[in-house]
Design a protein around this nucleic acid. Sequence first.
DNA 1: TATTGTTATACTCTATAACTATA
DNA 2: TATAGTTATAGAGTATAACAATA
Lengths: 158, 158
Amino acid sequence: MKISEQKSKAPEINDKTLQAFVGYHLKRAFNVVQADLIETLKPFELRMLTYTALVLIVENSGLSQSQLADAMDVERPNLVIIVDELEQRELISRERVVTDRRTYALKATLKGRRLFDKTVEAVTAHERLLLSSIDQETQEIIIQAMHLIQSKGVRGKA
Amino acid sequence: MKISEQKSKAPEINDKTLQAFVGYHLKRAFNVVQADLIETLKPFELRMLTYTALVLIVENSGLSQSQLADAMDVERPNLVIIVDELEQRELISRERVVTDRRTYALKATLKGRRLFDKTVEAVTAHERLLLSSIDQETQEIIIQAMHLIQSKGVRGKA
DNA sequence: TATTGTTATACTCTATAACTATA
DNA sequence: TATAGTTATAGAGTATAACAATA
């Protein structure tokens, strides 16, 4: 059941073992953030992946697909269709690099930078709403804690 | 690039716009937690979904598939194969309910409860490691904040 | 008519192997 | 030989429509 459509009959499921894990709360909160972000980006016809790629290309003009894949924690083959989509919509361009003709320099077009401006504004407003009941100090504590968790994740995926 | 295999050449990608969003840090931390959890569950041949289902069935003996789907935020059709898998491995049983012959009462078997005990212990140890540099008070602040975020997520998925 | 569990299906995200062209 | 980008493919996870059995 989605959070937004809970019925009044209250199933009262006991999830105390799961609740004992911070990861469980993290997952549920992230699901909400993600769902809201997807809705926020929908009017701009962007998904999380295409949005993230656009932002990184705007702010790192000329980077390669490999660098972008690294920054996004996405395998290179999966990045291809993301970049394809942004290119087809004329939000970015792929330019050959003369010094290394294997790589592309990814650059945002004017149209891409304009979409970037609009979406960042919308996403900022959306996040402000989600965090409206959490004070600035607590937000900073959360960010620091998230970094500590990341630094402990040594086992990783591969 | 995976966190565990970063090369020393330091691409120095600028992600300041993304960093401005708590959701970005949440996502990256959750990815680490999730990757570690997947590794932790692998020796038990459980995925996050089958693990969560097993835990909820053990602690809510007799619940129906619909109730479980609600609790897990999973669509009922997708829960079927999860329950199928647990049943085939004889970790749970599906029992017909005499008062409502449409539903199944899901119950853990002895084998299921034993696997539950072992996995909860392993997951507890794994989480303790991930959170070892975050004090108890901060952990509670995080949990409260995650609940606040969830309560703000009114737009939801559907 | 509504609900439970089910089947079929489709879409997104993710992961790996193998190819090409360049270096 | 090594790397950048690509293709093909396969596996998860997720979502909806439609059906049979039951209420």
